[in-house]
Amino acid sequence: MVEIVIDEDACVGCGSCVEDCPNDVYEMDEAKNKTKVVKVEDCMACLSCHEICPAQAMEHQDIHVAKRLYIDRSVKDAINRII
């Protein structure tokens, strides 16, 4: 089961994820001016929201992570050493 964690400190409340999600997984919390997850069961883990989020404020847990063979292994190794 997919779980989406929103980092409220990072979220800038731009609403890009709300607009971009084809399955209306997100809604704006008007009081906090932050995004909130309302239909996690409809999330298909396409990760369009990750790509559009300017603050990288979300994390998807327990999803199928697609292969990324287009990234050089040397680049992946370098990133892994830094993070």
Binding site: P22, A45, C46, S48, H64
Partner: peptide, 10 residues
Amino acid sequence: IDHVGPNACL
């Protein structure tokens, strides 16, 4: 094609 994303396409 309904939707395309970096991790999955519907």
